[in-house]
Design a protein around this nucleic acid. Structure first.
Lengths: 129, 129
DNA sequence: TTAAGATTGTTATAATATAACACTATGTAA
DNA sequence: TTACATAGTGTTATATTATAACAATCTTAA
């Protein structure tokens, strides 16, 4: 568990307390009062936070959420469910799924240490409506 | 198998014959001689081609490849392997995997019709080097 | 034939992300 | 403690990816 730099901490705190994924420029607007003024400052912190597994990027949405999977030990094997109506995103932590994917071999017998899986559908609330 | 419009056909042909994923603006530069001059013309064709499953978007790369999975019947359940060195992308078509994911239920018992999975690693060639 | 829907062409602009350079802080080894 | 490497910061400029808005044209099914 490494210590975060000033900018990294500010940006992680913001993402961590957000109930929804945040986009880079939304983050920028929200940390300008804390002295982070330029996109690059945000992107650099985001890059690092992703690298150390504190946050994940939702690729299909260009947005970032804090890791809630086993205290951020799983930086390279990520799975999410995404509601196509309300855009709610939930990190999936499921042993069967992660084992299946970690052990998956393609037809060349090749294994992959890293993957990202995004499921799309309707969340409970949106399904009812 | 629906017929493609003029722009859709031009752009599909380009992507289909490319050995690697193509980015939108790379596509644009390559079809300008055929009269497609503006980004929006490219993006509109791409949107449609993705929608009907003729191509897929590689979300982590913002790039597009032609579907090679059972003649494009699987538009909503996609899996790829991506080499982190040479950026080679291969569509995975594996019955076990697609069945597993299609039947996956999260802890709320929820199923998802649509997913996108991207595996990362080194391709055969790059592994040897 | 005609009206709805899809597609096209065009200009402008929004949203997302990185290059390059100079400077500062921090940790580590001599 | 110095000095070196590494990581982080601040800044300006710019590259890359994607969409808004509007008018015109093509396609197709009743």
């Amino acid at each position: 568990m490494q210590t975060l730099s000033k900018n990294q901490q500010i940006i992680f705190d913001l993402i961590n307390k957000s109930p929804e994924p945040l986009k880079a420029y939304t983050i920028l607007y929200n940390v300008q009062k804390k002295g982070i003024k330029a996109p690059l400052q945000v992107y650099r912190a985001l890059d690092k936070l992703v690298e150390i597994g504190k946050i994940h990027k939702i690729e299909s949405r260009n947005a970032f959420i804090a890791c809630h999977n086993s205290s951020c030990q799983v930086a390279k094997a990520t799975a999410f469910s995404i509601c196509e109506i309300c855009e709610k995103v939930t990190e999936i932590s499921n042993d069967s799924l992660s084992k299946y994917l970690a052990n998956f071999k393609d037809k060349d017998g090749m294994k992959y240490i890293k993957y990202n899986l995004e499921f799309f559908g309707l969340c409970k609330k949106c399904k009812v409506k």
